[in-house]
Design a protein around this nucleic acid. Structure first.
Lengths: 228, 228
DNA sequence: TGTAGGCGGATTGTTGACAATCCTGGCTCG
DNA sequence: CGAGCCAGGATTGTCAACAATCCGCCTACA
């Protein structure tokens, strides 16, 4: 006999995590409608639990909550790309400087092992797993830096990045284990300047992938469509 | 006959903003219990609306949500102070660099007028108003910088700062219009380095106020109390 | 034929009652 | 006399029915 309170407190988390994972794995396209009843049925949860999960996802900007019109997977405009990546460069540069000072040998070992696993995933052609590990690499770096406020913010930025990639290019952004390894090795040498440079370049690489493929985007105004 | 949906969608906002303002104005001490029924009565709202507001405040870390035990105004530990201020220095330095490049004459004028108003508030001894304007100064700067992602994060950091001040020192942190004016004048000259330096020093000044008065804090362990 | 207006179904928003949980105070028992 | 325990009351968590809203389509009319 499951206790309602505990069971359902987890029900909300279950729905939240399921949708979050689906977005990160690109299994839910931007604009997909998220109906409360349907989700409640699928997850065997009450509508209230689903509502709570959607509200949280909305606060993280992963779904767009339109009053009286339901929730859809967010469909960020390409105008957000520069802002997002500038924010990431700012924060992650700061993280690099912190880590170059404070990182422990154990953390270095853990990062190396992580990058190796990431590399193996890409090598065997498992892009989904590679992508997921690439995301978690940035989160791991953020946690190791040991600043809770920055880590919290990074979580938001990291989750939003793949969504933006999917909305713009229609496919997975390739993060790449090689870039990550260079960052880790710079940190291992406690070379703050090199770590910052490599992380910055890495982020610029990912961003460039997005804008380069940003051609087939929908025009913003009707005037632009018919001006030619 | 007020329409339930619209009236209550705003009811949640009303509760949210009222509590937010009360925290920023230091009218609610950390640890204060926020009972749902009581708040619902006070604001003439339903318990659901109050719940929604509390959930949002919880997500902003302004109230602590304890499962089955209700919500209280957050009581952050002093250990968070360095993290918070480091995050602010990182972000606001980036904002300064952006603004030194992009700020418009109109924005400069607006910032100058804002600082003048802030100064007048302090001059006439109205600390509450001065404090409120000091907070909004940082938010205004953040908005002018024009990066939505960073602005969003700044909002969280800015709201959390006075709470930390209250929890630690028991009184209002003095931000000071003079520091703000120097920042604005550096921006007016489009001197990025000077703007960054002044903002960084300003934040360091505020942080120093907090740690300097951090003596009468509760000891963390019983052992520490009785070791003497 | 094209457009304005308005039903019908589906979906979201809200409420109040009910269930579960926690805290408090007093009681019993060792 | 103190520790453990057990109601009683207060508070939070959950749910399912009801109300409000929106979208698509259909009709009527110019």
């Amino acid at each position: 006999m499951p206790r309602p309170q505990e069971r359902n407190a987890r029900a909300e988390d279950r729905v939240f995590n399921a949708i979050l994972d689906a977005v990160l794995d690109h299994r839910l396209a931007p604009g997909t409608k998220l109906k409360e009843r349907e989700l409640a049925e699928i997850f065997g949860a009450s509508r209230g639990a689903v509502r709570g999960a959607l509200t949280r996802l909305g606060h993280s900007l992963l779904v767009e909550l339109r009053p009286n019109r339901g929730a859809v997977i967010a469909n960020p405009s390409s105008a957000e790309t520069p802002d997002l990546f500038e924010a990431r460069r700012v924060i992650e540069s700061a993280l690099m400087q912190r880590l170059a000072r404070n990182i422990t040998a154990k953390q270095i070992a853990e990062l190396r092992a992580f990058v190796a696993e990431e590399q193996r995933a890409y090598d065997r052609g498992d892009r989904k797993a590679g992508q997921r590990l690439s995301i978690r690499f940035h989160k791991l770096v953020s946690e190791f830096a040991g600043n809770a406020a920055l880590d919290r913010f990074m979580e938001h930025l990291i989750c939003r990045t793949p969504l933006l990639a999917l909305a713009r290019t229609g496919r997975i952004a390739y993060c790449g284990a090689a870039d990550h390894r260079e960052v880790v090795e710079a940190l291992a040498k406690r070379d703050a300047a090199a770590a910052v440079r490599r992380m910055t370049e890495h982020l610029a690489n990912v961003e460039r992938q997005l804008v380069r493929e940003d051609q087939p985007e929908m025009p913003q105004t009707l005037a632009a469509v018919f001006s030619a």
